[in-house]
Computed example of a mutant assay.
Amino acid sequence: MSARTKARKRALDMLFQADVLDVPVMEIVAGEASRAAGEPDRVASWLYAREIVDGVTDHRAEIDDLISSYAQGWTIDRMPNVDRAILRIASWEMLHNPEVPAPVAINEAVGLAKEYSTDDSSRFVNGVLGKIAEHAQS
């Protein structure tokens, strides 16, 4: 598993925890930073996970507006927490990280949805992100 794939999982964990526990994401990040400091082999994945979480936090309003506009019949608040976090991560990568091609961001997000969410989530995530990718190219 690549360092970026591990980083996406770590970012998902942090965003999900903050959402479920209803605490500021930076509290979760601080705890993860302490753990990462004690495990030098996790440095590469930690740095990108932190970049993702910071990026999602900085651009959350824009990202949530896009997700809401393309998630037909779903509001951000009605989405399962894990799906919402996955969509935010991939949306940030497509919109604000030119190093990650949209198909890679979508593929990684669909994989996370298959692993951590419901049977229908991967199709939902794929559909929403496909529309966001089209938006990003226009």
Score class of each variant (00 low, 15 high):
Gly55Tyr: 02
Arg84Met: 05
Asp64His: 05
Val82Tyr: 05
Arg60Cys: 03
Ala85Thr: 03
Ser69Phe: 13
Asp83Thr: 09
Ser69Gln: 15
Ala44Thr: 10
Arg60Ala: 05
Ala105Val: 04
Tyr48Ser: 15
Asp65Phe: 01
Met79Val: 01
Ser91Tyr: 04
Asp83Phe: 05
Pro103Arg: 13
Met79Gln: 00
Arg88Tyr: 01
Ser68Asn: 12
Ala61Thr: 12
Ala102His: 09
Glu62Gln: 13
Leu66Ser: 01
Leu47Phe: 14
Met79Ile: 02
Trp92Met: 04
Asn107Phe: 13
Asp54Cys: 13
Pro98Asn: 14
Pro101Tyr: 10
Thr75Phe: 06
Trp74Asp: 07
Ser68Lys: 11
Trp46Met: 08
Ala90His: 01
Gln72Cys: 11
Ser91Val: 03
Val82Glu: 05
Tyr70Pro: 04
Trp46Phe: 14
His96Pro: 06
Arg88Phe: 03
Ile86Thr: 09
Arg84Pro: 00
Val104His: 15
His96Gln: 04
Ala49Met: 01
Thr57Met: 14
Val43Phe: 15
Leu87Cys: 07
Asp65Gly: 03
Ala105Phe: 07
Ile86Pro: 02
Ile67Met: 03
Pro103Tyr: 14
Glu99Tyr: 08
Glu99Asp: 14
Met94Ile: 14
Asp54His: 12
Met94Ser: 07
Ile86Phe: 08
Met79Tyr: 00
Glu62Lys: 11
Glu99Ile: 07
Glu99Gln: 11
Trp46Ile: 08
Arg60Pro: 02
Arg88Lys: 08
Gly73Thr: 06
Glu62Met: 10
Asp58Ile: 11
Gly55Arg: 00
Val82Phe: 06
Val43Pro: 11
Trp92Val: 03
Ser68Ala: 15
Trp74Lys: 09
His96Glu: 05
Ala61Phe: 11
Asn81Pro: 12
Asp65Tyr: 01
Leu47Glu: 15
Ala85Asn: 04
Ser68Arg: 11
Trp74Ser: 07
Leu47Thr: 15
Gly55Leu: 01
Ala71Asn: 00
Asp65Ser: 06
Asn81Cys: 10
Gly73Val: 05
Asn81Arg: 10
Ala85Leu: 03
Val104Pro: 10
Ile76Thr: 06
Glu99Pro: 07
Asp54Asn: 14
Ile63Thr: 08
Arg88Gly: 08
Ile67Phe: 00
His59Asp: 11
Trp46Tyr: 13
Val56Tyr: 00
Asp65Gln: 06
Ala61Glu: 12
Val53Met: 04
Leu95Thr: 09
Ala44Glu: 11
Pro80Asp: 15
Leu95Phe: 04
Arg50Pro: 09
Arg88Met: 03
Asp64Ser: 08
Asp77Gly: 11
Tyr70Lys: 08
Val56Ser: 00
Arg78Trp: 05
Asp64Met: 02
Ser45Tyr: 02
Ala49Arg: 00
Gly73Asp: 06
Ala71Trp: 03
Ile52Thr: 10
Ala44His: 09
Ser69Val: 13
Asp83Leu: 09
